[in-house]
Design a protein around this nucleic acid. Structure first.
Length: 506
DNA sequence: TTCCGACAGTGGGGTCGCAAT
DNA sequence: ATTGCGACCCCACTATCGGAA
């Protein structure tokens, strides 16, 4: 199959807003692709690469050669080429990559170039990724989409699942099983503003667990062999020896556990997320900060798969196999007041919040099902918009991303604390574009419009963290817009010292 | 007919490793 | 030694479609 076939399908998918039409376009193409190229086609059309990453990002795709007129490249050829690009390493590798990228794009038509650069930068923008592709595979292979979804959870890689479905139907999909050593796509959580709201959503007693601000891990053990994977199924075994030892210390030898690694102080309160992230990312050099691990789910214990069991039964298996010191604190209750107090206690101890879990829910990966609901405290500040950036994609032509500042009464100036683009409705985007063009003041760059510091905006965020990026030495975590405050003047905005007071101890 | 679950899109700060400067 | 890029960790929110109610 030719790359241009995929590029055309992608364009057709992008042109139709209806999801069913997108699925039809994708399924039609999948029906035509041969077994050798099925994985590549599914990967590309769901915005992924068989190589996963090849070391080429937006910057490497800035100056591309003129396109050709004739499209001749096959999927197999493109795949082999990307493999070559990925294989470059050592001194001279960046130049070699550039040369190969140039060769690849020089042999492509304009439409192929567009498709390839979007694919390589991870911005396919066709309104279809894994979720829609699952439906397209189900349609093309004439199998229930639930079967595709389940196989994906177990295998963690949709192109492989899709190729199997196209070649062997439901029978092939049912051949995917939980394998110790191969990571399962992790179950994710929705969110709610309060524990009370979360309990209402679940509609009965629920398990409430501390939400630790660390890194999600899935630990597999078979005999003495232990492997540890992240949320995106990357293998981080070498970076977390403490976790490996903890799992080796269990009596169960055939086990798959879900949990969180985190760096704690001596008094068991959590260190900032940055500390945990730094420790886990470090492959070479000293490991001064110790890591702790807390498990909250068991997917397999002593050869028994638990995925389809309700949460309560999986947790019973977890407590039977793992000592309490390695299990996330948990309370089962239907009482909202008791639940709120448990949440407050977790927050008092410095943790991120809680996760509320419906007792009957099976382990379901991929979808953010209503089985798990996270609850975190929310802070707010009134800040001043210092600049705005032009948006991309569906926000093109709109001023989208805001630079946020706190008031400094000592200088009469403003200290930048970060940016946000979240929480804006289309209406608000339109309004702020007009408003900010009126406030524009100073040298505009290609993307950024500096503003007179007059517009106050109420911002929600999860916390204040230390920053080397901003002069004030602080940045907001997960900032989002709540509403504009036309009633406030810039001098009425929250002050730098008020923000500093929210900074946790080092 | 209305409601709501699931999905895709739009980007945020921070960290590391690696190659180039 | 420093800088820039790519890849990864954490992530919130809105718009939209289409099946459920």
């Amino acid at each position: 199959m030719l790359l241009i076939d995929l590029a055309r399908t992608s364009a057709a998918v992008a042109a139709d807003s209806a999801r069913l039409a997108k699925i039809r376009h994708l399924a039609e193409l999948l029906a035509r692709v041969g077994p050798e190229e099925a994985e590549i086609a599914i990967a590309y059309l769901s915005g992924e690469l068989p190589q996963r990453q090849i070391g080429v990002g937006w910057r490497s795709l800035q100056d591309l050669p003129e396109p050709r007129l004739a499209a001749t490249a096959t999927l197999t050829q493109i795949d082999a080429f990307l493999e070559r690009i990925k294989a470059q390493s050592g001194p001279g590798s960046q130049a070699a990559r550039r040369a190969l990228v140039s060769e690849l794009f020089g042999a492509a038509t304009r439409q192929e170039q567009t498709f390839l650069s979007r694919l390589l930068t991870g911005e396919l923008r066709q309104g279809a990724l894994d979720g829609v592709m699952i439906e397209a595979i189900a349609k093309a292979a004439d199998v229930p989409s639930a079967e595709v979804r389940r196989a994906l959870m177990l295998r963690g890689w949709l192109p492989a699942v899709g190729a199997a479905a196209l070649a062997g139907g439901v029978t092939a999909l049912r051949d995917f099983h939980l394998e110790v050593g191969r990571p399962v796509a992790p179950m994710l959580a929705q969110s709610a503003p309060t524990v009370t709201a979360a309990l209402e959503k679940i509609g009965g007693p629920a398990a409430i667990e501390w939400k630790l601000d660390g890194i999600r891990v899935q630990a597999h053990r078979s005999g003495d062999e232990v492997r540890v994977f992240t949320r995106t199924l990357d293998d981080i075994t070498e970076q977390v020896p403490e976790l490996v030892e903890a799992v080796r210390g269990l009596t169960a030898t055939d086990i798959v556990l879900d949990g969180e690694v985190i760096a704690l102080r001596d008094d068991a309160t959590p260190l900032p997320f940055q500390v945990t992230a730094s420790r886990v990312a470090t492959k070479v050099g000293p490991r001064e900060v110790p890591l702790s691990v807390f498990f909250f789910d068991a997917l397999r214990v002593d050869g028994a798969d638990l995925l389809d069991l309700p949460d309560a039964e999986r947790h019973a298996a977890l407590t039977a196999a793992v000592p309490a010191s390695l299990i996330t604190p948990r309370l089962v209750t239907g009482d909202a007041e008791e639940g709120e107090e448990f949440f407050a206690e977790a927050v008092r101890k410095g943790h991120e919040g809680v996760v509320v879990k419906a007792p009957a829910t099976a382990y379901a990966a991929g979808r953010r099902g209503a089985g798990w609901i996270k609850v975190k405290p929310r802070h707010t500040l009134d800040l001043v918009v210092l600049a705005a950036e032009w948006g991309h994609g569906r926000r093109e032509g709109k001023l989208s991303n805001l630079h946020l500042g706190a008031y400094d009464p000592e200088t009469g100036g403003f200290v930048m604390l970060g940016k946000t683009f979240k929480g804006l409705t289309d209406e608000l985007l339109a309004w702020q574009t007009e408003r900010f063009l009126e406030l524009a003041d100073g040298p505009t760059t290609e993307w950024t419009v500096p503003l007179k510091p007059e517009q106050v905006v109420e911002i929600a965020f999860d916390g204040v963290q230390r920053s080397t990026r901003y002069e004030g030495g602080m940045a907001l975590r997960f900032a989002r817009v709540l509403r504009y405050r036309p009633d406030k003047r810039a001098e009425d905005a929250d002050t730098v010292s008020a923000v500093r007071a929210l900074l946790p101890p080092a």
